[in-house]
Simulated assay, not measured.
Amino acid sequence: MHFLKPLLPLTLATLLAACNTTSYDKATIYYDRTQFPSQVIKDFPDLSAPVTQHGRCSVIISTPGSTTGPYYFCTYALTAAGLYVQGWDAKQLKYTEIARVELSALKTISLYSFFKNKQVQLTEDRRQLALTAMIDEGGYIDGDATVRLFETLKGKGIRVVESDGVVKPPAPAGPMYVPIIIPQVKR
């Protein structure tokens, strides 16, 4: 057993190096709840209406009726007239637009709900957004904030429809298994 002693520190260091305590969305999207409304208005000067709701989010953008689309970590800002979804450019230290939705252009909204997984689905003529609010610290879905966003949009008179199911990002490429068949030779 004495031959394992030199391997113990190396094994322990390898295991601890694999631990990641920061969620990926928090690492890629800057969000400070108190400063966000003033920061987003500074980055988007044409956003003149007061921000009524905001937070960290994830969004999938697709075409109406689709169940897959590109996935983005984001922040959102809701005003009386629109929903602004933005990413973060760490090089320029500013928010960049992912999508801008005029509430008057929305045809329907729906809420997909399965246990803690909740998703507001906003459908325009040629675009569909599936937005999920995240907690401020990132990494986990904030179901209550997602429902609050849905209820606010519903209160603006947008037509509510039944959700067709969750909208997901495309499946990642997986490994391809090729079976190798070795014929048995009779002796």
Rank of each mutant, 00 (worst) to 15 (best):
M1L: 12
F3A: 13
F3L: 13
L4C: 10
L4Q: 07
L4P: 03
K5A: 11
P6D: 01
P6H: 02
L7N: 06
L7V: 08
L7G: 12
L7Q: 07
L8P: 03
L10T: 06
T11R: 00
L12C: 11
A13C: 09
A13Q: 08
T14C: 13
T14G: 14
L15E: 04
A18W: 07
A18N: 01
N20L: 10
N20M: 06
T22S: 08
Y24E: 09
Y24F: 10
T28H: 05
Y30F: 10
D32Q: 08
Q35S: 15
Q35A: 14
F36S: 04
P37S: 03
P37I: 02
S38N: 06
I41M: 12
D43L: 02
D43E: 05
D43Y: 09
F44Q: 06
P45M: 03
D46G: 01
D46C: 00
D46A: 08
L47N: 07
L47W: 00
A49R: 04
H54V: 01
G55Q: 10
C57I: 01
V59E: 02
V59A: 09
I60Q: 10
I61Q: 02
T63V: 14
T63K: 13
S66F: 11
T67Q: 13
T68H: 03
T68Y: 01
Y71L: 05
Y72K: 03
F73T: 02
A77N: 10
A77M: 08
A81L: 07
G82A: 11
G82Y: 03
L83E: 08
Y84F: 12
Q86F: 09
G87Q: 04
A90P: 02
K91V: 05
Q92H: 12
L93Y: 05
L93C: 02
K94W: 00
Y95S: 07
I98E: 01
I98W: 00
R100N: 10
E102Y: 04
L103S: 05
S104A: 15
L106A: 12
K107N: 12
K107I: 02
K107E: 11
T108Y: 15
T108W: 12
I109M: 06
S110D: 14
L111H: 04
S113Q: 13
F114D: 14
F115Q: 15
F115D: 15
N117L: 08
K118M: 11
K118Y: 01
Q119K: 04
L122D: 09
T123P: 02
T123V: 15
D125L: 09
D125Q: 12
R126G: 13
A130H: 06
L131I: 15
L131M: 14
L131Q: 01
L131T: 00
M134P: 00
I141H: 02
D142C: 09
D144A: 10
D144L: 02
D144E: 14
T152S: 14
K154A: 06
K154F: 03
K154P: 02
G155D: 13
G155K: 11
I158W: 08
V160T: 11
E162V: 07
S163H: 04
D164W: 00
G165E: 04
V166S: 09
V166I: 15
V166L: 11
K168W: 00
A171L: 14
P172M: 10
A173N: 05
A173I: 06
P175A: 14
P175S: 13
M176R: 07
M176K: 14
V178R: 13
V178Y: 14
I180V: 13
P183C: 06
Q184H: 07
